[in-house]
Simulated scan of single mutants.
Amino acid sequence: MGDWRGMLDQLVRERGRALFGYAYVLTGERDQAEDLLQDALVRAFRSGRRASSLDAAHAYVKRAIATAFIDRARRASTRPRTAAGDLQDWVGHLPVAADHAPRVTTALDLQSALLTLPPRERACVALRFIDDMTVADVADTLGLATGTVKRYLSDGIARLREAMPDLELHDSETAAVDVKGGGER
């Protein structure tokens, strides 16, 4: 039983920050990201089986994070919503260094725009552009077809550009989809 504990310790020690960062990008809130990462680690290691390598364990936990996030979003959409804090309240509590203000503002705008995306689009965009995965890797990580990932990426990028017209996202693996039914862009 010590085998999986050693792998878990090594994973958290060496890749914990990256996994937390991924969870944070999906949730947008520190507490929720911590809970999501904890749930994913429990899912990944509850059977007591040892992963074949640190990379395999990392990939498995990352997929568990995405799956748990999508499951939570699906469950939350069926429950009545309570009045939650406004994004401006959340932003107001963040420490901001004066010399980094433009970059921080852009990052917060991007985070805000990401939070408007549906869960699957957000997961695809985060894996593709933040983790710099290929479309095939995103599809493999999320257990989706590559065409489905391309569609989620196309829709997600379009929504992000509506919110942030100056956003520069170049994806050589996907082609823009014109949903207006013809005409040139």
Rank of each mutant, 00 (worst) to 15 (best):
M1E: 10
R5Y: 13
M7G: 05
M7N: 06
L8C: 08
D9Q: 15
D9L: 15
D9S: 15
L11A: 10
L11M: 11
R13F: 13
R13T: 14
R15V: 12
R15A: 14
R17L: 11
A23S: 01
A23Q: 01
L26A: 00
T27F: 05
T27H: 04
G28T: 03
G28W: 04
R30D: 03
Q32R: 15
A33N: 01
A33S: 00
E34H: 13
D35T: 11
D35W: 06
D35H: 08
D35L: 11
A40T: 07
A40I: 13
R43K: 08
F45Y: 05
F45I: 07
G48Q: 00
A51K: 04
A51T: 00
S52C: 06
L54Q: 04
A57I: 01
A59L: 07
A59I: 01
A59C: 03
Y60P: 00
V61E: 02
I65W: 01
I65Y: 00
A66I: 05
A66P: 00
F69L: 07
F69A: 09
A76D: 14
A76V: 11
S77Q: 05
T78I: 09
R79Y: 04
A84N: 06
G85K: 15
D86M: 02
Q88W: 12
D89C: 10
D89T: 15
W90Y: 07
W90I: 13
W90A: 10
W90F: 12
V91A: 12
V91E: 11
G92N: 13
G92V: 11
P95M: 12
H100T: 13
P102A: 12
P102Q: 07
P102C: 05
V104D: 00
A107H: 04
L108F: 02
S112A: 14
L114F: 04
L117I: 01
P119E: 05
R120G: 12
R120E: 15
R122F: 05
C124A: 05
V125W: 01
A126T: 15
R128A: 09
F129Q: 09
D131Q: 14
D132Y: 12
M133C: 13
A136F: 09
A136P: 01
D137V: 09
A139H: 06
A139D: 08
L142A: 03
G143V: 11
G143W: 11
G143P: 06
L144M: 07
A145M: 06
T148N: 02
V149F: 04
Y152L: 08
Y152V: 08
L153P: 07
S154V: 14
I157W: 00
L160K: 02
E162I: 09
E162N: 10
E162Y: 07
A163K: 02
A163Q: 03
M164E: 01
H170A: 13
H170L: 13
D171R: 02
S172V: 10
S172A: 15
S172R: 14
A176P: 00
V179Y: 14
K180L: 14
G181L: 02
G182M: 13
G182P: 09
G182W: 10
E184V: 13
R185A: 12
